[in-house]
Design a protein around this nucleic acid. Structure first.
Lengths: 198, 198
DNA sequence: GGGGAATCTTGCCATTTGGCAATTAATTAC
DNA sequence: GTAATTAATTGCCAAATGGCAAGATTCCCC
């Protein structure tokens, strides 16, 4: 076995924690990943093209966003270190993405293509489990976000985000966070003022 | 090969349409499903227990709902004929569900258990693809619902639901639909009045 | 370090939605 | 068929959020 890069070692740790897998197999998997670097502001994926990279983000923060009919950005999610980043609909259905993925700061990660991912899924049941677990986790967290969006006020959602993902506030401008919360930047500003006055 | 029940035939049609699969294999899969009948108002899943059945609904409508801190029902989704019904988080993580699944009318379907599903996934790559496709489709539709929830008004969301899922209005009371849309029943009532006056 | 751009805040007012309670309508049980 | 229950509508007012534009602040580039 060749020695692994620091990025690949992180992936091995991540995979084996996410899903039980012989360390040897995890490192075998990680050898199929290639390094990736994305500068601040650059795009990992642009709407209209097909998401073809399954990226394990080792450092940095990214966001996914859609463009609404008026041309405004709507941030649909944030991605941080130790997370898998891709656009699920486009990636698995092999259709053009309706979302963009952009680096909020310079990022490093490692990636595999759709084709390689499928090879690995086919060959390694444990890795398949890992892949399913990524999917299920994403689905679950979207479900709870959906529930909180329709049941909680914007202020509550803001406070929850502040608690669950404080790092984002250091890496994304407030207008981006506002659109993620489903409110305007003015409203977020007023909410922050109220919270700080308590 | 034994002859298939009408339910099982529907499943074969469904699977082969959803994902290319030799008809023989699809019917082989469908033989592992057992019939299920749920009366109106009865629960397929109660919060607190682990979702253990992967149900292919052949007839009828169901809903999933969570209970908020004040004890109110929040409908998180509707399920209709030809759809796969289960609670993904609980089912795949094997943890107690935080949601209920209830029949809006008497339903028939066929089901397999978690254990059988995994056997089939393991043995049949094509069925695995089918399973992934179900997951991805659900994820995708939740993503677009999320986006529309934070970008559109309640009236627009109402009109979209009316267009995309008109049947629900014949099977679910308006208060249930209101909670799905993230508004109160009074607001939905007012919205419907405005729409009808246009 | 000065100018320009982007971001954030604030004021004013409009719109949307909620809360609550009363009333009407529909459904269900007997 | 009638009473009882549940669902839906409506009125009144309050709270939450948006739209727009003007300032203030921060960031960035040269």
């Amino acid at each position: 076995m060749n020695s692994l890069s620091p990025e690949q070692s992180k992936l091995v740790d991540f995979i084996t924690k996410a899903y039980p897998m012989p360390a040897k197999m995890a490192s075998e998997v990680s050898e199929r990943f290639y390094p990736l670097r994305i500068n601040k502001g650059d795009f990992l994926l642009k709407e209209g093209s097909v998401s073809n990279e399954y990226v394990f983000l080792t450092e940095g923060y990214m966001r996914s966003f859609a463009t609404d009919p008026d041309g405004n950005d709507i941030t649909t999610s944030f991605h941080g270190p130790q997370q898998v980043v891709f656009e699920i609909t486009s990636f698995f259905h092999r259709i053009p993405s309706r979302e963009n993925i952009q680096a909020l700061m310079s990022c490093t990660g490692i990636a595999i293509t759709y084709a390689t991912l499928n090879e690995l899924f086919h060959a390694l049941p444990e890795f398949r489990e890992f892949g399913r677990s990524i999917l299920v986790r994403g689905f679950s967290s979207l479900k709870s976000r959906m529930l909180s969006t329709i049941t909680e006020t914007a202020e509550t959602r803001y406070l929850q985000l502040l608690q669950s993902n404080p790092d984002i506030f250091h890496h994304a401008p407030l207008r981006t966070i506002a659109s993620y919360l489903g409110i305007t930047d003015s409203s977020l500003s007023r909410i922050r003022k109220e919270v700080s006055e308590k």
